[in-house]
Nucleic acid binder design. Structure first.
Lengths: 354, 354
DNA sequence: CCACGTTACCCAATCGTTTGGTCCAAACGT
DNA sequence: ACGTTTGGACCAAACGATTGGGTAACGTGG
């Protein structure tokens, strides 16, 4: 119970109260050098009780100044109001906290200038390492940090050969392709995302590649990358639906928000979702299952991906060598692609990834 | 450009290079005492150029140790994956950053034990102040912090007489009541929220109170408080729709996520949203307008509310006296309550709050 | 009785800043 | 011409911890 009125007790006060030297108290309370040089059992116990009684808590600021380690991790994400990143951050923050690290987070909005600005600011605050959730496929910026030997781990998006914790996006795209194909769709489209984000790029590539293998190639003009929000999905889908020639019968949106936008556009065009046009999303956000028309989506373990990112960074801060982790996705089939529940033989719930 | 290989230059190195005493350099570079005791113009300029050339950046850790101010703000929210809180946090973090404060955030999940745990942890890290986004109407916990003279500001939810930055939730509920009443609904219900959260309590109270004034009282069993997520909205709405007697013709969900859940339940019950049952939400999240069936919702300036919370706390840290801010809401009418656009005379967009 | 290894401590330097105190010289007022 | 102010700069003591380097006291084997 710290009180702001009178400042918290210092190590010196504890030492005085226990009638020992401050250094002895330090060694006893935080036996860094495995207690070899600590005090006798009796003295140690006395120091500990005094510390407890006084409510002593080591001042982290002084510790940092002395040791040079801030025990802080900077996290940079495109937007925290993106549920996917927020969830990953929750997992990451929780893991970091249990390992004694505190995290603090900034939104780069996928803007290179803001990204650099936050990075330099964090560096000047002497953070121990970084977790980037906003990496681009072009690793130039990250390579620069590596050259300055700044510890970095990526989350959600991969880039170059930097260590990352991600879902298997290519596989996720393939799962959707297999599902669409099984439902008999031969004329498909991909909406949303950005070419420089590995998530959407890999999801799209996996989808297109598998579709081609299955004999139904997706022409380039059927891949419309407009962004990650609902609005992006709406405009892309609207474009597809009024394109010359046959409109697609199935749309793969690279995340649930673009999927929701796409569903809106489908409905606005007077088509029925699921029946006329199938729509699938990605990430299986909590909303997907609860939408007025439940959305088929690829589930990736977002919190787990976040936790792993924190673990990877902390281990690499300890000098261990670490390598990227990739998490397997699952396809969750729902009415937006399969209104009558035919594909999964009457089931509308989990379909395991192979 | 800091490099992790060789440690960044210290003030002492700058002073040596500029041939002045370290204290002179300190005063010149960070004129705390309004420059009265600083150096001559020539010396000052010399020190500044040397500092720039060496890439000097003041070590925040040493600063904190010396001054006792951490320049840090702890933020505690129920869940960062809740878009509303995430958006407020974005605004708050941004404002804090421009004022030279860094923020760090934890999820309490509305659990009192976690809340206390995070608070004590932050206190032991010597944060300068707190912003709580998870306050309960019962101010006991916050009163305790005040007694220990810990600077606190609330965001989103109010509590007791603690300083807060919130939307005018009561007024928002009234707006929805007026809208429903104008559409001819006499039989309404409220779903979602928790009795101990001022947001949902005030929204519900404002709605019920105005509805009664307008001659259509809402019976207590028509107010079902189940939580804040989509699932909560779905179960509450399902209960209402299969209740004995007449089912309500209009549902006010205390936020957009519960509204989405409620819409799902309405559809699952075979009723048409907007025509058979009107549904309104709260917060006007970006999704609301882009749903397959656009959702009527009360807009509150979330980012602005967050920014103001940061401003209030920082000003109170500076010793200024501050008071709570309440932001006016606007009703955004869309198809989920008004499918043909009659109410707003053909318009489906903004209706200003009076 | 002495040399020596242990045990159980204490001492003091150090991390990078800020800031009240001191001091000298130049400027100033009368 | 002589005290008094003041601008400009230096000195050194903090802030709260860690940690390598002493050093008494004590037991023990030769």
């Amino acid at each position: 119970m710290l009180d702001r009125e009178k400042p918290p007790p210092t190590l010196a006060e504890v030492a005085r109260a226990a009638q020992v030297h401050i250094s002895t108290a330090s060694r006893v309370l935080h036996a860094a050098d495995d207690g070899r040089r600590a005090a006798s059992a009796a003295t140690a116990e006395r120091i500990r009780t005094v510390a407890r009684d006084l409510g002593y808590q080591r001042d982290p600021t002084a510790l940092r100044l002395r040791t040079g380690h801030s025990q802080e991790i900077a996290v940079i994400v495109p937007r925290l109001s993106d549920l996917v990143l927020a969830t990953m951050y929750e997992g990451l923050q929780q893991r970091a906290a249990t390992e004694g690290y505190t995290t603090y987070v900034s939104n780069s909005q996928d803007d290179q200038q803001l990204r650099e600005q936050f990075t330099e600011a964090a560096l000047s605050r002497r953070v121990d390492g970084f977790i980037f959730g906003d990496a681009t496929l072009d690793p130039t910026f990250l390579d620069g940090l590596r050259r300055r030997s700044v510890p970095v781990v990526l989350v959600n998006r991969r880039s170059g050969d930097h260590v990352s914790s991600t879902g298997d996006d290519r596989r996720g795209g393939q799962l959707v392709a297999e599902h669409f194909s099984a439902l008999g769709h031969t004329d498909c489209a991909v909406v949303g995302g950005r070419p420089w984000a590995s998530t959407s790029a890999d999801r799209g590539a996996g989808f297109v590649e598998r579709m081609a293998q299955l004999g139904h190639p997706v022409p380039p003009e059927r891949v419309i990358q407009t962004g990650f929000d609902a609005e992006a999905g709406a405009t892309a889908a609207a474009t597809l639906l009024r394109s010359p020639g046959r409109a697609p019968t199935a749309i793969f949106a690279v995340n649930d928000f673009t999927a929701i936008g796409a569903m809106g556009a489908v409905r606005a065009a007077g088509r029925e979702i699921g029946r006329d046009v199938a729509v699938a999303g990605y990430n299986d956000t909590p909303l997907a299952a609860l939408l007025p028309l439940p959305l088929t989506s690829v589930r990736s373990p977002m919190a787990e991906i976040g936790r792993e990112a924190a673990t990877l960074l902390i281990r690499s801060l300890r000098g261990e060598s670490v390598q990227s982790r990739v998490f397997a996705p699952e396809l969750m089939v729902r009415e937006s692609t399969d209104p009558s529940g035919t594909a999964a033989a009457g089931r509308t719930d989990v379909v395991e990834a192979p």
